[in-house]
Deep mutational scan, measured.
Amino acid sequence: TFVALYDYESRTETDLSFKKGERLQIVNNTEGDWWLAHSLTTGQTGYIPSNYVAP
């Protein structure tokens, strides 16, 4: 799992909003700078900017 370093507000319907400190499970990280992730807090799935999270 990864932890959010910053808050992120989604800009498209495929993005995932999250708050700093939220735990995220990475589903697919082969898309370059945008990873498909599942929030362990909200249960939602969407794309996140990879530079906003850390292991």
Rank of each mutant, 00 (worst) to 15 (best):
G46L: 01
D33M: 12
T1S: 09
Y6F: 13
A54E: 13
H38E: 11
G32K: 14
L36M: 08
N29M: 15
V3P: 01
I48N: 00
Q44V: 07
Y47H: 06
K19N: 07
N28L: 10
W35C: 04
L16N: 02
Y8C: 04
D33F: 15
G32V: 12
V3N: 03
Y6R: 13
P55Y: 10
V3W: 06
K19W: 05
L40K: 05
T42C: 02
K19D: 04
N51E: 11
E22V: 01
N51W: 15
T30W: 09
S50Y: 09
S39T: 02
K19H: 09
L16A: 06
R11M: 13
T14K: 14
N51Y: 11
S10G: 15
A4Y: 01
L36H: 05
Y6V: 07
I48H: 00
I48R: 00
G43M: 07
L36W: 11
D7N: 08
L16W: 03
S39M: 03
G46K: 01
G43D: 06
A37H: 00
Q25H: 11
K20M: 07
F2K: 02
I26E: 01
K20C: 07
N51C: 09
R11K: 14
Q44G: 08
K19G: 05
Y52F: 12
G21M: 02
N29F: 15
A4G: 05
E22I: 00
T30R: 11
F2C: 06
Q44Y: 08
T30H: 12
Y8N: 02
G46W: 01
T1L: 15
K19C: 07
P49F: 06
T30S: 13
P49L: 08
A4E: 00
V53S: 02
T42H: 03
L40D: 06
W34C: 09
W34P: 06
N28M: 11
R23V: 15
L5T: 04
T30L: 12
W34H: 08
A54W: 10
L36V: 07
D33K: 13
P49A: 04
T45V: 13
R11S: 13
D15Y: 12
R23A: 13
N28S: 14
T30K: 12
N51S: 14
K20S: 08
S10P: 09
R11F: 10
D7P: 06
Y47R: 09
W35T: 04
F18Y: 02
N51D: 12
T41A: 13
D15Q: 15
V27E: 08
T14A: 12
L24S: 00
S50N: 07
P55E: 10
T30Y: 10
E31P: 12
D7C: 05
Y52W: 07
Q25K: 10
K19Y: 07
I48C: 02
F2H: 08
S50Q: 06
Y52M: 13
T14M: 12
T14C: 12
G21K: 01
L5Y: 03
T45W: 13
L5N: 03
L36Y: 12
R23F: 15
W35P: 02
W35D: 00
P55N: 09
Y47F: 12
K20L: 06
T45H: 07
Y6T: 06
W35V: 09
S50W: 09
L36K: 05
K20N: 04
S17F: 05
N28V: 11
Y8F: 10
W35G: 01
I48K: 00
W35L: 08
H38S: 11
W34N: 06
S17D: 05
Y6P: 00
P55R: 07
E31Y: 13
G32W: 09
H38V: 15
G21N: 05
Y52H: 09
S39V: 03
P55C: 07
D7K: 04
S17P: 08
G43T: 03
A54R: 11
E22H: 07
L24H: 00
A37D: 00
E9A: 10
T14E: 11
S50T: 06
R23G: 07
S10N: 05
